[in-house]
Nucleic acid binder design. Structure first.
Lengths: 87, 87
DNA sequence: TGCTATTACATACTATAGTAGATAAACCTT
DNA sequence: AAGGTTTATCTACTATAGTATGTAATAGCA
């Protein structure tokens, strides 16, 4: 599993859902627009501190990583693959 | 919140629970004993790929990050603070 | 079709993640 | 207290995370 792409796709999706441009979110989070662009395209391997700071800026309060191929975030499941059957 | 210490403490606890020494776990995971020592003491800021690789080696299949001050892992809640009241 | 906003790409740079090898310090167990 | 096992600490190194600046490509929209 490519964690770079998984994290990137999910941050991109949440940013768009919140209505931020990369430029606007760069101001909010303190990262550069260029770095965020790379991150969202899966070209970067962020540290846990970077992920935490971005999550804070996005207003995400709960991150869940389920190994096979999913990431979820409170109230907004982030799936990399079709949702697993829950029952 | 210091994510370095939070991640470090939790990985250290799980490693001990699984009965691995740092040296043995270094062999399993491919990281050095020295790096794992630093990591567990909160002196390192691991990337998402490193965290993923360590989780795989630990046999952890589910990680959960709740912002204030908790991390949980499937079947084995990892709390940084006294457990929150669930009801 | 052209204008504007947005995102992708290029180059160069500094700080640090992670490696490697040696050793010191702490912890057991007897 | 001695000896072995485990963890912490040192030095030195390479690769890459993240910054900074500029610009090209793409997408909407009038």
């Amino acid at each position: 599993m490519d964690m770079r792409k998984l994290v990137g796709r999910n941050f991109a999706r949440i940013r768009r859902e919140k209505g931020f441009t990369q430029e606007r979110f760069a101001e909010l989070s303190g990262f550069t627009q260029q770095y965020l662009s790379d991150l969202e395209r899966g070209l970067r391997n962020p540290t846990i501190v970077t992920i935490y700071e971005i999550a804070i800026a996005l207003g995400v309060s709960h991150m869940e990583i389920v190994m096979p191929d999913q990431i979820e975030e409170a109230g907004s499941p982030i799936t990399d693959a079709p949702p697993a059957q829950k029952s």
